[in-house]
Design a protein around this nucleic acid. Sequence first.
DNA 1: GCGACAG
DNA 2: ATCTTGTCGC
Length: 237
Amino acid sequence: MPDTPGVVRRQTTDGRICLDHDWPQDARACRTLQRELADRVDTRHDTGPVATLGGVDIGFEDGGRTTRAAAVVLDATTLAVRERRLVRVPTRMPYIPGLLSFREIPGALAALEALETPPDLILVDGHGIAHPRRLGVATHLGLVTGRPTIGVAKKRLTGTHGPAPERRGAWTPLYDGETVIGAVLRSRERVKPIFISPGHRVDLDNAIAWTLQALTRYRLPETTRVADRLASGKPDF
DNA sequence: GCGACAG
DNA sequence: ATCTTGTCGC
């Protein structure tokens, strides 16, 4: 959304206009901006028809100076890969716990815009609202693009929870006090659970449902697995 | 002051 | 995230 704080329009060499960012460089200001943005998060479930699922993941090279961003599109029903895109942009921010989105969104935005067709729902590598200020990278990216997003993280950032169920597909709530901010999901038996949380325009139940839909025999959903291999430059196709 | 801390 | 050897198991 062009009117979201921190988001600005940029013109490419061929005259096209696309979204760019202009975040504060100071951590203090970034946290203030996060609290501001958190009020704009759409907590309702408002995805349109979902025919395609997107995956976004970021990797680094040159000791972190260059950011590699991958965006992929899979068929929501068959999980067949429809499109894959990889872009490189200079890294502008270091990793600071709680401020991950400011480091990764620039690349994610560039990769998404390189796609021919934007996905209907995006699964992001990282948390959604399961964040100290409710603004994880998935939520932030959803706000910036205006698209529905889900956070799929491999580790907990904040919140408390009971023991994760053993059964595949079962989950236990992730709490911030009395509020449920996500789910600790057993995506595969005998393997560490993953953390699912609403990003933007998706509620927790649907976030879990779509994650399960994108899950096969592995710990992580296919969307993030495909994006992962692309971003980390592994042997793929 | 002491731990915790997505990717 | 990245670096980085061997090892356990299907």
